[in-house]
């Protein structure tokens, strides 16, 4: 199985599908280092986002994924870590 890559584009798409975007928030802008909380996503929005990532990529995320990775950049890197393990356990 070849390695998939998870990008910021994938993340913003999943965020929009599962939780939408707040008023005045442009997910297409430079959000890589902005905390999810500042982007208007509370724990439930992140739970929904995590669930959607798990479903789509066939991975199982740690319960602490969003407390350990609070920005899109950190999360994208972490998800890619999971995807790497998937092909080379």
């Amino acid at each position: 199985m070849s390695e998939q890559e998870f990008t910021i584009t994938d993340l913003t798409r999943i965020l929009l599908e599962g939780a939408g975007a707040g008023e005045g928030i442009d997910l297409g802008g430079d959000i890589l280092d902005t905390d999810f909380e500042e982007l208007g996503y509370e724990s439930l929005a992140l739970l929904e986002t995590g669930g959607r990532i798990e479903r789509e990529y066939g991975i199982s995320l740690d319960d602490d994924i969003f407390t350990d990775h609070r920005t899109p950049r950190a999360l994208v890197a972490a998800i890619n870590g999971y995807l790497k393990e998937l092909v080379a356990p």
Binding site: L16, E17, G18, A19, G20, A21, G22, E23, I25, G40, L44, A45, E48
Partner: peptide
């Protein structure tokens, strides 16, 4: 409504 509120 903002899209943030629609899925919930």
């Amino acid at each position: 409504l903002p899209s943030r509120l629609i899925p919930q």
